[in-house]
Amino acid sequence: METLLEEFYKMDLIVEKFHARKVRLDDKSYQINGITNSGKSKIVKNYLLSLKKSSYLYIDCSDIRIDIKLMNLSLSSFCHQNNIISLVLDNYTPDIKFVQVTQLIITSELYYQFSNLITLQLYPLDYEEFLAYEYKYDSSALNHFIQLGGFASMHKINTDERNIYLQKILSLKLNDIELNILILAAKFMSQKISAHTIYDRLKQTRKISKDKLYKSYEQLVQKGYIHQLEKFAHSRATKKIYLCDISLKSALSLEKNFGRLFENMIFLELLKSKRKSYYSEGIDFYLPQQNEIILCKPFADERRLFKKLESIESFIVSYEVRKITVISMNKEVSISHPIAKVDIIPFDIWALGD
């Protein structure tokens, strides 16, 4: 095992065209959580390249040559003998024992309760981060974002290969049941659906236990492949379901509904900016802390919008909502309304403005 550790120690790390993310590392110890292809490894490697090469050891724990029992026996002494300051356990699994080093960094899809590690949650690119990958920022950037989504690797994949590329990645990282659940989640993107409903649908095509499905569903939520949105003031109501990235919609489903895709885009921006939101009947997102309602209307029509506002007027009055933001594809206008301030804002301006 020491021979393999020596190989890892001498290996030159390579990071091509790194674009800064909103998550940054310093000399503290971290746990970085995020789904596959969210950029965990690239961020870690880029940080290590700023250090003296002899001071760090990078181990990708998914390397099949690793014997975890043997590594647990030899890792501590190896780090001590080589004066390792920074140890990185990429794709960490809980069978691996920590050793005493100045800085420890682990990456994983799942969150682990470690009091000595600062937890950083990494998502696929938000719209602002995505723009760093564009050659120029013009009116085509938003359309490009809708086509590619937030996985940085998609910029290098040919158009005709993107769906298969994503399918292969997901097939490698998820088990059969998890992948089946995610396929159904793609079909019901931005809609109310429960794990029980997913179970009822899946059991029609395959043999599966309810307990196993519930466990797999919860794993997808914990890892961040699926996100749930609670109904305001009704915590037991069925939650709305969103995908970790909009690119999965076309990769996993033939269902076409741009309105739901657009809503998922907006949800992810809210999630990544850590703004707490809920849904309610007729209301896409309610942000209590900002006293704001967000409506997703990619092709906003003022006449229909006024009818929409009438239908949610009781909610606006009851909770004294002062701001209503209507997010569109390209329309920008302020509307005079007796109850609250109403602004129609293009997605790109809204996403960058916050």
Rank of each mutant, 00 (worst) to 15 (best):
C296F: 10
S209N: 14
H234G: 05
S29K: 08
I43Y: 06
F151S: 05
F98H: 10
F98T: 04
A233Y: 05
N33Q: 07
L148G: 05
Y165L: 06
N116G: 04
D126N: 12
E218L: 04
A20M: 11
V23M: 06
H19F: 15
E134M: 02
S38K: 09
S108T: 09
G39L: 07
L117E: 11
K212L: 12
Y127N: 01
G34E: 02
D12M: 01
A186F: 09
R322P: 02
I208P: 05
S328L: 04
K53D: 09
K223M: 15
L13P: 13
M265D: 02
S86H: 13
G282I: 11
L4N: 11
L51K: 15
I293R: 03
K136A: 09
D90E: 06
L184T: 08
D176Q: 13
D90C: 03
N116H: 14
S314F: 11
W350K: 05
H196V: 08
E6A: 01
F98R: 08
H19A: 00
Y135A: 00
R162N: 13
E218K: 13
A186L: 06
K231Q: 14
I316A: 01
F145C: 08
L174D: 12
Y199P: 08
Y123L: 04
Q290R: 05
N180L: 13
S216M: 06
S336Y: 12
D90R: 07
S171V: 09
R260Y: 15
S253T: 15
K187W: 07
Y47C: 00
S280L: 03
G282R: 00
L51R: 15
G259I: 06
A340S: 15
Y242Q: 00
Q219D: 12
N83H: 15
N291F: 01
L184K: 12
N163I: 12
F262N: 03
W350L: 04
S314Q: 11
L248F: 15
N175H: 03
I66M: 07
N163W: 14
A300Q: 11
F8H: 07
P288C: 08
S62M: 05
D245N: 01
L57W: 10
R206T: 13
K239Y: 06
E161D: 15
S209A: 13
A195G: 02
S74C: 14
F262K: 10
A186K: 00
K156P: 03
M1L: 04
N143C: 08
V15K: 08
G34Q: 03
D90F: 08
S328Q: 10
I349Y: 14
Y225R: 07
D354W: 14
N257D: 13
L182R: 09
Y133R: 00
K215T: 09
I339W: 15
K22D: 09
P124A: 09
I14F: 07
S280G: 01
S38D: 10
K10P: 12
M265G: 07
Y199D: 02
L179A: 02
F262S: 07
K249N: 07
I64R: 13
E263G: 04
L248P: 06
S216T: 02
Y214K: 08
L70K: 08
M329H: 11
D27H: 14
S216E: 12
N180H: 09
T36Q: 13
I349G: 03
R303T: 08
